[in-house]
């Protein structure tokens, strides 16, 4: 056994998650388990982290993201080698909204990978953490889940699902040793948004977003908006009456 903080990252090749991982190992050596779908890509992240922090333990797990049995087996296997302090569930995919409208297959894929899949992972960890009465489950949702908009409502619906789910999980674990943190990033400069950059979108630098996530997860706040200004912006967006909102090009 060791006394390093044990952190599991689902979707460890995500740019946001990777920056979080760099900060975690920079603060102090950690025991990291990186979970992703592509062995070569996770290995690249692991190699980099190992150089940054030779004292850290870095494990990689190639996993399935939709099959419940496989997800359960992956999580059980991870927990077998020791209690988990933090799990960050980060994977996601942002398709063109029109693709979801024109192709039901793509619509379903979007709902599943952004909504169902993170919930299955969270639920599997919830069971294990409940037994240990210890741990933090951090889920990356999105400001897009706060109100449906024509430019990305299928993705937004999946993120909304994660929002409701996190609320319920927070209720379930209220007053016990397990914490649930929902992270809602605004538009962030990562490969996911590269296509928006050309259209002049204002994107937050990923390093700053990751720093706020790491701090937020540490403090165990139930909902973190990153950057923080999005809390206010989304409050306004959520409360706009439909006759105003529906006229907006957003």
């Amino acid at each position: 056994m060791n006394n390093k903080k044990r952190i599991v990252i689902i979707g460890a090749t995500s740019a946001i998650a990777e920056q979080c991982a760099r900060l975690w190992v920079q603060n102090q050596p950690a025991d990291l388990t990186l979970v992703g779908r592509d062995a070569q890509r996770i290995e690249r992240v692991a190699t980099d982290l190992k150089v940054r922090s030779p004292q850290s333990e870095i494990r990689v797990v190639q996993a399935e993201f939709l099959d419940p049995d496989a997800i359960n087996a992956t999580v059980v296997n991870i927990v077998k080698s020791g209690h988990v302090d933090i799990v960050l569930i980060a994977h996601g995919s942002l398709p063109e909204q029109t693709e979801c409208q024109n192709d039901l297959q793509s619509c379903r894929d979007t709902l599943e990978i952004n909504g169902v899949s993170p919930v299955l992972y969270a639920e599997a960890f919830a069971k294990e953490m409940e037994k240990a009465n210890h741990g933090t489950i951090a889920l990356i949702g999105s400001v897009a889940g706060d109100r449906g908009r024509k430019s990305n409502y299928v993705y937004g619906a999946a993120k909304g699902l994660v929002t409701r789910y996190a609320q319920g999980l927070q209720h379930r674990f209220a007053g016990c040793g397990v914490k649930v943190v929902l992270i809602k990033p605004g538009p962030t400069d990562t490969p996911m948004t590269a296509h928006l950059k050309g259209k002049g979108a204002k994107l937050a630098p990923v390093e700053g977003v990751a720093k706020q996530i790491v701090e937020g997860v540490e403090s165990g706040k139930p909902v973190i908006y990153v950057p923080g200004k999005w809390r206010l912006i989304m409050m306004v967006i959520r409360t706009l009456p439909a006759f105003v909102f529906n006229k907006m090009e957003i």
């Binding site: 690249r44 190699t47 980099d48 150089v51 940054r52």
Partner: peptide
């Protein structure tokens, strides 16, 4: 700038 990974470092 996305090719921003370390590969090896020998102390």
């Amino acid at each position: 700038t996305g090719l921003d990974h370390f590969i090896a470092f020998d102390d």
